[in-house]
């Protein structure tokens, strides 16, 4: 189908973008790889699209003083190609290959993915696993929101009207730390049936995507001392919603399969 009618504006500065994004009926357009399908299917009917892709300051990857910062407009393809991401954020380097297909990864952005917060999306789970900070900005200035608090509900995040995601920041991986991202899907690049972002640092975090309305941090399993206890604990941590093809019980079973694989990877020495 064709998208409904809307106006289009492409601000060149953040100040201009904040003003436009505050207008009633406005929607922010980044890479558009989720927004445009939803317009095409007429699930969304904004009056104004605010295309923020002209704002250069929202792009780019940097690693400074042990902190990785990824600008909101950085595309999946840029993350996939980045040597710095491979070195300092292997969790994201592994996750990004699961995101759709090359032609979509060339346009889709990190900021768009986390602002939308699709429950099956990879980045939100990774950012919770890495205890990331989401940098958001609006007319009143910048706010820092812990990823733990940013994802509030189904497609619901801690963004106020007129605010944009500016970047995500998280600690670069240390030598003794390990990360692994695993996902099961019907076809490579399809939405996850279930996915797992696992990071073992000072604390271990197993965070699932496709397992609830938001990324689900499996706290009990993450605290478990051995795999069997972890798998048992997962039954209390997760109550994954069924999808068209998989029951809740199947998804829980698959979550345990991923936990086993991740556990083995995280505990294998370098």
């Amino acid at each position: 189908m064709k998208a409904p009618s809307f106006a289009y504006s492409k601000p060149q500065s953040l100040a201009e973008a904040f003003e436009l994004a505050e207008r009633p009926g406005a929607k922010v357009l980044a890479g558009g790889q989720s927004l445009i399908p939803s317009l095409n299917m007429r699930l969304s009917a904004p009056e104004l699209l605010v295309d923020i892709t002209g704002i250069g300051s929202l792009r780019g990857i940097s690693v400074e003083q042990g902190v990785v910062r990824i600008g909101a407009l950085t595309t999946h393809a840029q993350i996939e190609r980045s040597a710095e991401i491979r070195k300092h954020a292997p969790l994201l380097a592994q996750a990004v290959t699961h995101i759709a297909h090359p032609a979509i990864r060339n346009r889709g952005t990190l900021g768009g993915s986390i602002a939308l917060a699709d429950p099956a999306a990879e980045y939100p789970a990774c950012l919770v696993a890495l205890k990331a900070t989401i940098v958001v900005a609006g007319r009143d200035g910048e706010r820092l929101v812990a990823a733990d608090n940013f994802f509030k509900g189904l497609f619901e995040v801690d963004l106020r009207p007129g605010e944009l995601v500016v970047a995500a920041e998280f600690p670069a991986i240390l030598k003794e730390e390990r990360s692994v991202f695993l996902e099961l899907a019907r076809r490579h690049g399809d939405y996850a049936i279930i996915g797992l972002a696992a990071h073992k640092g000072a604390e271990t975090r197993f965070v699932y995507c496709g397992a609830g309305a938001t990324p689900v941090f499996a706290k009990r399993a993450s605290a478990a001392k051995d795999l069997d206890t972890g798998k048992k604990a997962l039954e209390k941590d997760l109550n994954p919603p069924a999808d068209l093809y998989n029951s809740s019980a199947t998804k829980l079973h698959l979550a345990k399969v991923l936990l086993t694989r991740a556990w083995n990877t995280l505990t294998t020495s370098h």
Partner: peptide, 25 residues
């Protein structure tokens, strides 16, 4: 027309994209 089939793949600034997931503007 929602980015699944790939029949509309074109190249923009040297990179392949979905022609149905990008506006002409």
């Amino acid at each position: 027309e929602h980015g699944v089939c790939g029949a509309c793949t074109v190249r923009v600034n040297g990179e392949i994209v979905r022609g149905c997931l990008m506006l002409a503007v």
